[in-house]
């Protein structure tokens, strides 16, 4: 009963054209679980929930700003050099984000390392610029960026939370388990990233299958 109600709610949101742009990124076209884009940061900085959240928000910011600018300039940029122009726009915002994070928290900057700079080559951002912002108006592009961005944050957080809880027995540095808990160290190592992501994708495959039958 409850589930039906929920589905009805999402369906009504999705049928409304302006909210559709926002909601599709969160669920139906989730950048990580459905489109499998932007995998590198997803795996690399999801070893704690805090890192995952910070990385997700930084990416969302860059995505939002680049979508706005690309959408504004879409009639000015010649078709032949569009990809190069998008990358330059993205690189500018990433440099800004990099310096901003360094100013806010050096600790966070150190734990995210080079992966902040590597937002430039996150396929998610370039693909939204190319597939959406270059064809649509600014309002729609903002909604699209926010939807995709929060979908990305959601996916990263799911991964980061599972890895931190199992790998260090804590969430946001708060210990969850009694003394006797033996943390699964493998979960915070690279191998754990692959396994956790595989399990989440499996889970979403199951959900999709259930819906269609």
């Amino acid at each position: 009963m409850n589930r039906n109600k929920e589905q009805g709610f999402f369906a009504s949101l999705a049928s409304n054209p302006s909210t559709n742009e926002f909601v599709k990124g969160l669920w139906k076209d989730n950048p990580v679980y459905v489109q499998v884009l932007g995998m590198c940061p997803v795996l690399a900085v999801s070893n704690t929930a805090e890192n995952a959240l910070a990385m997700g928000l930084a990416t969302t910011f860059v995505l939002l700003m680049s979508n706005i600018l690309v959408s504004l300039l879409r009639k000015v940029i010649p078709k032949q050099v569009r990809i190069a122009s998008y990358i330059l726009i993205i690189a500018t915002f990433v440099t800004m984000t990099d310096y901003a994070i360094q100013a806010i928290s050096v600790e966070l900057h150190n734990s995210l390392g080079a992966f902040i700079s590597l937002i430039v080559v996150n396929c998610l951002i370039l693909s939204r610029a190319e597939a959406f912002a270059s064809k649509n108006g600014i309002g729609k592009s903002i909604l699209d960026a926010l939807g995709m961005g929060f979908g990305f944050v959601f996916a990263l957080f799911c991964l980061g939370a599972v890895r931190e809880v199992l790998g260090s027995g804590s969430l946001f540095n708060i210990h969850l388990f009694p003394e006797g808990f033996q943390p699964w160290v493998v979960m915070i190592l690279p191998a754990g990233g692959f396994f956790t992501l595989a399990l989440w994708l499996l889970f979403f495959n199951l959900l999709k299958r259930r819906k269609t039958t």
């Binding site: 990233g193 396994f195 595989a198 499996l202």
Partner: peptide, 21 residues
């Protein structure tokens, strides 16, 4: 069918990563 495609590749990659450790 549940693990076909990306999921299987990721699982294999995880095992490879363990080996490389």
């Amino acid at each position: 069918w549940t693990v076909k495609g990306t999921v299987l590749t990721l699982l294999v990659a995880g095992i490879l990563s363990l080996v490389f450790m």
